[in-house]
Amino acid sequence: MFGVSIDNILNLDQKYYTMEDYQSDIPRWCPGCGDNGILAAAQRLLREEQIAPEKTVFVSGIGCSSRFPHYMNTYGFHGLHGRALPIAEGIKIRRPDLHVFVNMGDGDCFSIGSAHWIHALRYNMNMVAMVHDNNIYGLTKKQASPTTPKGLKSNTTPKGAILNPLYPLCTTLGVSNVSFVANAVEWIPELLYDIIRQGFHHKGLAFIRILQRCPHYTPHVFDPLLNEPDNILLLSHENGMHISDPIKKMYKNVEEHDPSNMHKAREYAAMTDRIPVGILYRNENIPTYDDLRKPEKPNTPEVIHAALEQEFDKFGINPKTA
């Protein structure tokens, strides 16, 4: 009796973005690579939040993981080795209207980029940093990285890695101003997505370390976790992760952990027998650098346009003198 209005029928006020809208190329990662799962989670996040591709930037360094921006149909910056974070910070400070994501590998972030890593944590700028940690340099064909477990044979350590690996979560939690630290594994897609989503909604730098299988160079390094689900410890809390029943059925080790408790977080980070998965630490009250040093003129298209107009006006010809 009322009929339907134009808005109802066409529903055109807003475009609905699908996963395909964020997908640009078919990934050239090896079959079975864990990066695929992280890519799917990132695309799903953008789809669920309905963020316009043109309002999103993915920044990466060098490595397998750093091919990420090529497969996202958003803005992207494939940077220098270890320099993804400073580039992302530069983007964020000039264009606070963009959503910035950083994808790095373990070699990229924890080795050559470690200085930037530490300071990015301290600067606490509003973005999401994901470290794809496969415990090896994969792109350059198997060299030991800071997180390579002791004893693993590689091209640079033919008799097995000599040093104990770096515990990136411990390091992170030791830096001042750190505001969000989470650990994820790529083979539980539901938790991975949820962690990235919570990181995205966090105000400040969300540091997410993701354990990622490399089927080619470290095929068995995560076997203790994959074959023995009890080695994974899920952290659940009403302010943190909510873990669904099917997941609880598979991973029976679930502990309550309040993400605001730094001491407890450090305990979990230092664990070696079991791997904690979930949000270790979160503090929304730490000031972000982009708030403290807000630019007077962010480079939004409108501002650039106005500046250009102003410049062009200088070339105006005065008809009286011509």
Partner: peptide
């Protein structure tokens, strides 16, 4: 499906038999 990590392995074998859903799983 909810556990799929979207690694494309099965779709490399036969993309007609295996397909992705809306969440790319």
């Amino acid at each position: 499906t909810p556990l799929c990590t979207s690694c494309n392995e099965c779709r490399n074998i036969n993309s007609q038999m295996f397909a992705y859903d809306a969440n790319k799983q």
